[in-house]
């Protein structure tokens, strides 16, 4: 079943075309990596999907519904969650309260009260391995802990689609492997489609993405199963340059 569909989406900033006629489909439960070098339009694409920007042209559909002009706060309750590249914790609130906010205003929104949200937050915090930091202020966490808290906060939204923006940058490779397998496990259990944006950590994508979409200068270059995509000569060129003629 198609969860998210973009049709010829274009976004310009002045003369710069950040995203150029991109079309793509994400199925429910699917794990997709969005790959591309700096400035290839990944973050803009994420902002178009989560509603931070509206596209100049093209349409965005979520579960068949046109959400092109829907403000972001109305997208979250539909089941659209995201994490930020640089974590954006609610600093003065505790870890528990941060995660509970996700539960309260995410897709469970109207169906859950404050106490239930806090309980759900506790479960997710435990699962993600932040149990001992539950009552700490979010601003006192380390960078990696903040990233984990953001993931927990997004999971508490019970999303159908989770956009992860470089969620694992700056983590130790071992932690990445662990985190990736944990997220994958939760995603399978709850049927969450994940779109992970990756700039550097190919390891994280290779580990679990079923499909890879490669962006280059705002356009979609390749959209194929992971192995195929990464072996594609155009992708190699974008990342490593043209092989030298011998």
């Amino acid at each position: 079943m198609v969860l998210l569909r973009l049709e010829n989406v274009t976004k310009r900033f002045g003369g710069l075309v950040a995203v150029n006629r991109v079309s793509l489909k994400i199925n429910s439960g699917e794990f997709v990596g969005i790959v591309g070098p700096n400035g290839s339009g990944k973050t803009t694409l994420f902002n178009l999907i989560s509603g931070v920007y509206f596209p100049d042209k093209g349409d965005v559909f979520f579960e068949g519904k046109n959400i092109t002009r829907l403000p972001p706060y109305k997208r979250a309750p539909l089941g659209l969650g995201r994490t930020f590249q640089i974590p954006r914790p609610f600093g003065s609130a505790t870890v528990r309260e941060n995660v509970a906010v996700g539960a309260m205003f995410g897709s469970l929104g109207g169906k859950i009260n404050v106490d239930e949200s806090l309980e759900l937050a506790d479960q997710i915090i435990e699962r993600i391995g932040l149990g001992e930091h539950r009552k700490k202020r979010a601003s006192t966490l380390t960078a990696v802990e903040k990233k984990m808290m953001e993931i927990a906060r997004a999971l508490a939204m019970k999303p159908k689609l989770l956009l992860m923006d470089e969620a694992m940058a700056g983590m130790h490779p071992k932690d990445i492997d662990q985190t990736v397998s944990l997220i994958k496990q939760i995603a399978v259990e709850e049927n969450i489609a994940i779109v992970a944006m990756v700039e550097h950590i190919m390891r994280a994508v290779l580990g679990m993405a079923e499909k890879v979409i490669v962006l280059h200068q705002g356009s979609k270059l390749v959209d194929a199963p992971t192995k195929e995509a990464l072996e594609d000569s155009r992708v190699v060129e974008v990342y490593l340059g043209r092989p030298l003629e011998e």
Partner: peptide, 16 residues
């Protein structure tokens, strides 16, 4: 609390 700390993040999390 969420909007006081980070209004953009709050909006994306579903807060009007």
């Amino acid at each position: 609390t969420a909007l006081r700390e980070d209004e953009d993040a709050a909006v994306v999390m579903g807060i009007n």
